[in-house]
Design a protein around this nucleic acid. Sequence first.
DNA 1: GATCATCTTTAGACTTAGTCTAAGTCCATG
DNA 2: CATGGACTTAGACTAAGTCTAAAGATGATC
Lengths: 131, 131
Amino acid sequence: MKNLMETLRQHGIQPTPQRLEVARYILECDRHFSAEQALSIVLERCPTISRATVYNTLNILVEKGLVAARVLTEGAVVFDSRVARHHHLIDTETGEIHDVDWGALKVSGTRSLADFEVQEYHVVLKGRKKQ
Amino acid sequence: MKNLMETLRQHGIQPTPQRLEVARYILECDRHFSAEQALSIVLERCPTISRATVYNTLNILVEKGLVAARVLTEGAVVFDSRVARHHHLIDTETGEIHDVDWGALKVSGTRSLADFEVQEYHVVLKGRKKQ
DNA sequence: GATCATCTTTAGACTTAGTCTAAGTCCATG
DNA sequence: CATGGACTTAGACTAAGTCTAAAGATGATC
Ligand SMILES: [Mn+2]
Ligand SMILES: [Mn+2]
Ligand SMILES: [Zn+2]
Ligand SMILES: [Zn+2]
């Protein structure tokens, strides 16, 4: 959607060609992707981009709140272009990660955790498609 | 507690000296530990044990239900000697992982997730100690 | 427009967690 | 004693990610 360059600027990120390619990938791709996935696709359009730049860019985007980094499965951090809070369901057969709307689940008790101040939480579900 | 050798046998695991050392570590250590942590401590008592054996043993213990493997933070799978279901709270300042009793939180809505059959779920909370 | 500082990118080395392999050890059984 | 199975070992290998040092681009200032 809307001007990528503008979006980056509004978030205080200098829009370089490399950063724009990474950001473009995020808009076009699956919601959840790893840094290595992003790297290999961005490389097709921008054959000289370095691994370091892709990782740096993703980390900047996380820092500035444009994507979220989530630790859901083994092996690689997953970047999530949906930053609004929601839960995740992992298909135990395929490994696919599905979003679960925040409103679909209700968690109670988080306010009463003894001497901890809870800043955020989310539910990680595992299951499989019916049938 | 109780005879380690017996426990392994009861779970269908051949109790070798190396496996007993790994199991002993689990009983004595922090509840949540990484494979590399286990390796470096077990090495002190059993200086020729190999990395492969420690990883293999941990994986067998998981398979047989004696410990649980959890993906909670970046960087390494965490093994959890408390296998009964519970939630986790990650201290954002120290990185420490704390257990939250299953009964302390209530999650509703997991049964009504459209075409998914939920097999298990847990809540991952982030926060910090009050004060 | 030339100068200089700062920001950014690059290739590749490096690190860490984890897996794999091939050879060797240690039984048990015939 | 021979064979086989289960187990361990060292070390090579892989994959994700970080770091570095040098080169390149940008931008403010004169
Ligand atoms: Mn790995
Ligand atoms: Mn790493
Ligand atoms: Zn998501
Ligand atoms: Zn736990």
